[in-house]
């Protein structure tokens, strides 16, 4: 029986959905976004609506939560979130400066 999930019986290149297909970002990221909860409007105004950073992340690496959280396993450090935050609440910090 041909089964694309079984390496022995598969006959064609069939891929299956997996988080982290390309692996974790690892050490090549030079800057990482850090959300300042004192500035994030989702924290400072509990009724405010925003999630602009969540919307703009090209990979969906920011959660739609209060406050939003960055998934550093897969964040590539492009800086789009920091650039697009209407409240200037995200800073790009050098990896080596972060613990």
């Amino acid at each position: 029986m041909v089964n694309s999930r079984d390496p022995k019986s598969t006959i064609a290149a069939v891929q299956h959905p997996t988080v982290g297909e390309a692996g974790k970002t690892g050490t090549w990221r030079t800057f990482r976004p850090v959300i300042d909860e004192n500035k994030c409007i989702l924290v400072t105004s509990p009724k405010a609506r925003c999630h602009t950073c969540w919307m703009f992340c090209p990979e969906g690496n920011i959660s739609k939560t209060r406050p939003p959280r960055v998934n550093y396993d897969y964040c590539k450090g492009c800086g789009i979130c920091a650039q697009s935050c209407p409240h200037d609440a995200i800073a790009m910090r050098k990896e080596e400066d972060e613990p």
């Binding site: 694309s4 390496p7 598969t10 064609a12 290149a13 959905p17």
Partner: peptide
Amino acid sequence: DPVGVNPVTVPEPREGFPAYMEL
């Protein structure tokens, strides 16, 4: 049960899965 058919393959097998040459 979504899948992708005919993605890019690599020269060597990965994680026990066949590569182009095995296919």
